[in-house]
């Protein structure tokens, strides 16, 4: 078996500039935020972020000038902090090209890619200007009801990155709590990378295999990153660090540098 366990820095280096990345989690919850920070530290450029409800992650990458395109459904820091300021500014300044979705339209696109079909039907959307904006097509039920349904193109991210509670050396990744959109995301992406709080034995995971969100054969590489979802939450291990989120939102390059330097993964080991 090839060694899948790499450092966080190696994991981030394996994602090339220009890649489209689907991040796991939702808003401040169980995002692979240490990996996001590592992309900023390595000076990544021209990334595309694909996520129904990003916030801290896309905002940090916008602040680090690492993201140029995005497919999103709703973007906010949330938790009482409101809009994502750097993301918002990047769009208003024309630095970030947005493809605006309706959450489920991203999921439908991921499902299409996962199933190996070029498009997928999605309910609703009629009456929304998103239909014309995105030039989404409709199909009339070929089986005779006459019902018209919107179809969206497949979305196959170059890379999916999720943060898991536990992972074994083979990449079997266990998640407690909501899977958010991580299930279709990891099936749709061309590559799957995992960060996880803890390395565990395969025997441990085999006791409750239904909790494994991604089987190891689908995972290319993984990094063990304690508090890797900080400053977000990881159920049931830790809650959102609201003070750290507030400190992150202080304007200026110095505040961002302080935030990156103060992150758990920057404390945990002497950086290569």
């Amino acid at each position: 078996m090839t060694e899948k366990i790499v450092s966080l820095a190696e994991l981030a280096r394996s994602i090339p500039d220009g890649a489209s990345i689907g991040f796991g989690g939702s808003f401040l919850h169980r995002g692979p935020f240490a990996l996001v920070r590592e992309l900023a530290r390595r000076g990544a450029r021209d990334l595309e972020v694909i996520k129904a409800s990003p916030g801290y992650d896309i905002d940090l990458l916008a602040r680090a000038h690492a993201v140029s395109r995005a497919k999103t459904g709703i973007v906010a820091i949330e938790g009482g902090f409101g809009l994502a300021p750097a993301y918002r500014r990047a769009i208003e300044d024309g630095d970030l090209k947005l493809e605006e979705h309706s959450c489920m339209t991203i999921a439908a696109g991921l499902r299409a890619a996962a199933a190996g079909v070029p498009f997928a039907p999605v309910a609703g959307v009629f009456g929304s200007d998103l239909l014309e904006l995105n030039k989404w097509k409709t199909v009339v039920d070929p089986y005779g009801t006459g019902k018209e349904t919107v179809v969206v193109p497949a979305i196959a991210p170059d890379v999916a990155v999720i943060h898991a509670n536990e992972v074994d050396a083979r990449g079997n990744a266990r998640v407690y709590g909501s899977p958010h959109w991580d299930h279709p995301l990891t099936r749709a992406a061309k590559r799957v990378l995992v960060t996880a709080e803890r390395l565990v034995s395969t025997e441990h995971l085999a006791q409750q295999p239904e909790l494994t969100l991604v089987p190891g054969f689908m995972v290319e590489a993984l990094a063990i990153v304690p508090r890797g979802a900080w400053p977000g939450s990881l159920h049931p291990d830790y809650e959102v660090d609201y003070q750290a989120v507030a400190a992150y939102l202080e304007p200026g390059d110095e505040a961002l540098a302080r935030h990156l330097a103060g992150a758990p993964e920057a404390q945990a080991f002497v950086r290569a």
Partner: peptide
């Protein structure tokens, strides 16, 4: 911020 799933949920 964007409508989240509103365009899908609101008509259905």
């Amino acid at each position: 911020p964007g409508g989240g799933g509103a365009a899908v949920m609101m008509p259905t």
